[in-house]
């Protein structure tokens, strides 16, 4: 199968590969997929709790070139966005940007899931933090 130029570009020069501090309360981590399925994405977002703006995004992906490209593009897409805007990102945006063929659509779905999971994790952490602050106050 031939890859689109954009997939090849993201594969060769992945944006924002890396790890953020998982214990940081302002970092949300989304880990989706499964090794047995052949793809696992980990997306981490550093979010400003005051403004709700995504200030940094890092990913690591085990998966095919399209999965790597989908997660790399997702980090580009959401950096600087508010949580609300990021939540509305649809996998179809990733499909059209990267020209993913039908058999690779699940890679874009996984990236969308990773964004949602990371935001959920951030919200959970914030809620816990607020709860514990209330208790101590």
């Amino acid at each position: 199968m031939a890859y689109s130029e954009k997939v090849i570009d993201h594969y060769n020069n992945p944006r924002n590969v890396g790890t953020l501090d998982i214990s940081d309360e302002t970092v949300g981590t989304g880990l989706v997929g499964a090794p047995e399925c052949g793809d696992v994405m980990r997306l981490q977002l550093k979010i400003n709790p005051e403004t709700g703006v995504i200030e940094d995004a890092k990913f690591k992906t085990f998966g095919c070139g399209s999965a790597i490209a989908s997660s790399s593009y997702a980090t580009e897409l959401i950096k600087g966005k508010t949580i609300e805007d990021a939540q509305n990102i649809k996998n179809t945006q990733i499909v059209s940007e990267l020209n993913l063929p039908p058999v690779k659509i699940h890679c874009s779905v996984l990236a969308e899931d990773a964004i949602k999971a990371a935001i959920d994790d951030f919200r959970k952490k914030q809620a816990q933090k607020n709860a514990s602050e209330e208790v101590s106050a």
């Binding site: 590969v17 997929g33 696992v40 690591k60």
Partner: peptide, 24 residues
Amino acid sequence: REMSPLYEMAKMGIDLKSVEWAHH
């Protein structure tokens, strides 16, 4: 492997078999 979350987890000593994966 530098890009693989699994390699990083394995190197941190996490047993990948014990992780509850979100099968899709």
